[in-house]
Design a protein around this nucleic acid. Structure first.
Lengths: 215, 215
DNA sequence: GGAAACTTACCAACCAGTCGGTTTAAATAC
DNA sequence: GTATTTAAACCGACTGGTTGGTAAGTTTCC
């Protein structure tokens, strides 16, 4: 067996993803990708038959990472608390912690990037993106539905759109963060989402103090 | 004076914007734009010296429309209520009404689209986008700051990021709406934003009933 | 007639993708 | 322990189609 090509493959994918988030997919030429990776055209097309195949591979990789990410946070929250509401709040808190720790401005979300060039991709690739969103909202939605049963919400809300709100907040905050070059923007928005859930599911007169959000 | 070219100019811009929201800016070729507009290449380059100039014109047009849009809603809210909190809630309600009335799935936001291809545009064009966001968050932030003075928030929050949340929710909801081809997704998310503001600025034991949000 | 509003024909640069050839290192043969 | 084999991994020149942009001429309307 000859040398291992997986390092090259991931190097291509890393360079491609970074470039795509700078210029978009259409303008991210293969020539630039291979120049940044330090390889040649032949090597690229050995690993990916077409540019579309690279796109799909990138989405698949991110989807797997994100699913594992959520699973990690959720299971950790489930061991730390028995209350589904607390589990959601903890899980969102873990995401927030990571975002606070971020120093570089957020480069953007590949899913959103691809969505805004949607016509360039085959249906299967976009279905993968839809699947990522559906999975996240589904998992969080399940928890929220359990939470709503135990803690009647103070306003009549649809749980499905409430779970979607996490996705919307995330994507919107990525845009703000990217536009303003502000690494903290995402954490701040996540905090507001968590605030909303706390207020929504708290008893009418409950005291809601604690460590205030940093400015 | 020869014939009027403004009709052609707006036709180009309309066709361009629609196409750009389907494929992104880079993949929206001038050839396709002129084919859809029903003109020739010469006509295009008579109205716009470069493709970048078209991009800037599109952003400028949308920026002016959005500013007028906000101004209209805000002044209407200001005549309907004297309380700054109610003014914000009314203003957001007006946005929501429009989004509920929408039947076609949202095509996407030009600002976000351009942001995800940011490197293709000159700094001035992206500054225009930054300006649009800053203006909206500034206006709503002013109202929220007045509201917070009259109605102490139930949780310690940063007003600036609270105003930003409206932008984040909007952009995120556009993405959800576009991905799922769901015209109602934007209204649902806006409703949650309004819920959050209501809960945040309401007295601890206040009754918050009213017409429930539609499923 | 004169200028704004267009048309047509054209070009150099860049694009994704191809193809025959070369290098590399592990497995096998001796 | 060294020579040979073998296929994966990689190279780089090439191509046909598309791109943004140009320039010189034509139409339209006051």
């Amino acid at each position: 067996m000859p040398r291992d090509g997986t390092a090259t493959r991931t190097a291509i994918m890393d360079a491609a993803q970074a470039l795509i988030l700078e210029t978009g997919f259409a303008a991210a030429s293969i020539d630039t990708i291979i120049a940044r990776t330090g390889i040649t055209k032949g090597a690229f097309f050995y690993h990916f038959r077409t540019k579309a195949e690279l796109a799909r591979a990138l989405v698949e990789r991110d989807a797997a990472l994100d699913a594992a990410h959520l699973e990690r946070h959720l299971s950790r929250a489930e061991t730390l608390s028995r209350d589904p509401l607390q589990q959601v709040l903890l899980c969102l808190g873990f995401y927030e912690e990571e975002m606070v720790a971020m120093n570089a401005p957020y480069p953007g979300c590949l899913y959103a990037c691809f969505l805004y060039e949607a016509q360039l991709f085959d249906a299967e690739t976009m279905d993968l993106v839809r699947g990522v969103f559906a999975h996240w909202a589904g998992q969080i939605g399940d928890k929220l539905r359990q939470a709503a049963r135990l803690h009647p919400p103070r306003l009549p809300v649809s749980i499905a759109t409430l779970a979607d709100m996490g996705l919307a907040i995330t994507e919107g905050a990525y845009i703000l963060s990217k536009l303003r070059q502000d690494p903290l923007a995402v954490a701040a928005q996540f905090r507001h989402y968590r605030n909303y859930l706390e207020l929504l599911f708290s008893a009418p007169g409950a005291a809601l103090d604690g460590k205030p959000a940093p400015a």
